[in-house]
Amino acid sequence: MKMSPNQDSDDVVRLHSVRKVYGNERNGVVALDGVTLGIARGTFTAVMGPSGSGKSTALHCAAGLDRPTSGTVVLDGQDITGLSERELTELRRERIGFVFQSFNLLPALTVVENIQLPLRLAGRRAKRTEVDDVIARVGLSDRKGHRPGELSGGQQQRVAIARALITRPAVIFGDEPTGSLDTRTALEVLALLRQAVREVGQSVVIVTHDPVAAAHADRVVFLADGQIAGELTSPTAHAVSERMTQLGAWADVPAADLTGGLR
């Protein structure tokens, strides 16, 4: 991983010496303790770690959802650390896509309307051809007029992915994007994210606890006790689960039980 303090031109996101303390510095909880991490453009990165390792905090800081106590975050060439709340809101709206475990769709809106929402909030008109294209890419062309309550969980997550893609963001962040899906549907969603990276050069960063999900990434970064604890490139589910066991996350669980026997 890149450890230089200078922003690499190929990094879509870079954290440099990021420290995040909840509460006061003396008695607070240290969630991140000097994390330096670069995420290359056009790649799929998974972040993993034991419970309380700081992985979700790292994602929230990288996405401008939380402010570091110290250190800097550069996103798409812009230092976002000192931006105002209004500026951060605009940046998230225009340059970041989000995919969450809970889908976060508006129940009163149709598939098309949910996908168009980020553009409307940014004061931009959605071109019908672009909306149709992104809907086709996630396999929902026959569900355009449906509302979330009429869709399965996997279909709702496909809508969320389309909504994240429609603004052509610099990076898509996913916080446990397959956490509420069954295994088959989760694999379909991960394949869609993988396809976005491969076919259109999208940058994707997800936090996950699932070694099978992480194995879809180009690279897995491990956190422990708020610090970088290593990484794997071209990961397999088995290699990821073994590394997590070494971190103490699943010390009492056989690796085969975590991967379902996958290699």
Rank of each mutant, 00 (worst) to 15 (best):
I172W: 03
V212P: 03
T167F: 02
E94T: 11
H216W: 14
F100Y: 13
Q78N: 12
W250R: 09
V47T: 05
H238V: 09
V171S: 00
I228A: 06
D10N: 15
T110I: 12
P177K: 05
S203P: 08
G54M: 00
F173G: 00
D218N: 14
E113C: 08
D10T: 15
D76Y: 07
V21T: 11
K127T: 08
S84L: 06
V221K: 00
I39N: 00
F173S: 01
E231C: 10
I161H: 02
G71I: 00
T236D: 10
N6S: 14
D142I: 06
L91F: 13
V253C: 05
L165K: 05
A170K: 08
N24H: 05
K20C: 09
Q156G: 07
A58D: 04
G153D: 04
L83A: 03
T36N: 04
G97T: 01
E85R: 11
T208E: 06
V131T: 09
G38M: 05
G77H: 00
A215T: 01
A255W: 11
D33M: 08
R120H: 11
V221F: 01
V200P: 09
T72Y: 03
S203H: 01
I96H: 05
Q156H: 05
G54S: 08
M3C: 13
V204D: 00
A191S: 14
T236R: 04
S180G: 01
G23P: 00
Q101L: 01
P148M: 10
Q78S: 13
D10F: 13
F44Y: 09
I115C: 07
V171G: 02
D182K: 04
T72R: 12
Q157N: 12
S180I: 04
K20S: 08
F100S: 02
A239E: 08
L193A: 05
Q195R: 15
T183K: 11
S56H: 01
D257Y: 12
V197M: 07
P169R: 14
